[in-house]
Design a protein around this nucleic acid. Structure first.
Lengths: 224, 224
DNA sequence: CCACAATTCAAACGAACGTTTGAATTAATA
DNA sequence: TATTAATTCAAACGTTCGTTTGAATTGTGG
């Protein structure tokens, strides 16, 4: 009854939609373009997914649910083997970033990357809520783990730094074509191991940055 | 002949478009919604800007050109007063981030913030090229300055870290509502001085992270 | 005051959109 | 094989979009 064959109408639609959404954007992709690419009838979308919104939701869920499950499994394994003690920071970051990097480089998931960044910018009413729900729980888990790894951070400080961390990570996973172009081919985003090492090094250093004094006038740039 | 009065049709259109683009997205905002909010005639858009694309471009240019000019002026001032010596890293980052933070908090520019992140995700053909051009030069200037401040970084390593830095900064400037919500009101994005101190502290630490060995197997997360 | 350009206006254009419909076709059940 | 459900199909629906048009209005220099 549900999908198990390699090329049902549902799957063809999801694949085509994912491909087109990531290259042209969601709003700019018409159902007719999707059904043409998938070589199925136009009405199939509303038959199988109810509406375009339903198709969009399913496109995201198909990738993000396994992604977050893998992240949680890795974090669970770390917490079990740590047996109550704080986990090493780099290991936590690894559990967050590696599933995304691996997915981003698999032949099937290569398209979802650009979509992930669009999440935060596209003010799609339903999509925004869906993803907020999807990420709020897993984010709490990882925040807690990071907080235990860097106990000297206050709750506010921790949240801010996690926010910066997410920015760096999302931007990296989503915008891999731009880093290659801007660096003039110097940087190779397909080198997963290199990206991982550099990204985690950067983020770990940022998260563990020394706490500055609040009233110390920083450095410069005030001349305006 | 050009705009100097406080409420010409052109300015009313730009203000209304900026507001609606940032809250609903560019594609989801119709010219009719814009002209209604601006209380001008529908045809005014095509008369004054040629097309919707022309309006979009002007909306971005009106904010980004002064923003980047201010950044360049600050960097120029730093380089002049440094007289050939490397500039302190935090001062360079300040020159990049403060104009954006200040603009994002002024009453007139509060709307542009969310748009800035959409830049990287929305695959609008013309817009993408416009912004790539706008940022490629200033980015080269700041990369060079940062490279002089941290001379031990190779060109590749520098580009990667600047990439991470941009992710954290863009995400912070653009997505200020989400940090307040996710932290349960704990983090206050309207505290410019606090945001500046934390963001620059994070990014500076990330940029100056120690260089790891290439072949050292990192930490964990491989169990899958 | 008059001619003339600049701007505004109501109305309509054709195209593209998401969705619906009802018949045709295929697959499953007994 | 007969019956019924699931799926596909071509065609059309009503709406909204960006853009165009040509007349009306406003502002300006001679």
């Amino acid at each position: 009854m549900e999908s198990q064959a390699p090329s049902t109408t549902k799957d063809r639609l999801l694949d085509a939609a994912e491909e087109l959404f990531s290259s042209r954007g969601i709003d700019a992709t018409s159902l007719r373009a999707i059904t043409s690419a998938a070589e199925v009838n136009l009405a199939s979308v509303n038959y199988h997914f109810g509406s375009k919104d339903g198709l969009v939701k399913t496109v995201f869920l198909r990738r993000l649910e396994p992604l977050n499950n893998e992240r949680l499994e890795l974090l669970d394994a770390l917490e079990i083997s740590a047996a109550g003690a704080p986990i090493e920071l780099e290991a936590i970051l690894d559990a967050w970033v590696m599933p995304a990097l691996r997915m981003g480089h698999s032949p099937e998931g290569k398209r979802i990357k650009r979509l992930m960044s669009g999440i935060y910018s596209e003010p799609g009413d339903t999509l925004q809520a869906l993803l907020r729900d999807l990420f709020s729980e897993i984010l709490r888990r990882f925040c807690a783990a990071i907080g235990r790894a860097i106990p000297e951070l206050s709750g506010e400080e921790l949240m801010w730094r996690v926010h910066f961390m997410l920015g760096a990570m999302i931007h990296t996973v989503a915008d891999q074509p731009s880093i290659r172009a801007l660096s003039g081919g110097l940087c190779d985003p397909s080198d997963i191991e290199g990206v991982r090492r550099r990204l985690i090094g950067f983020v770990a250093a940022g998260l563990q940055a020394p706490l500055e004094e609040k009233d110390a006038p920083p450095t410069a740039g005030e001349n305006r």
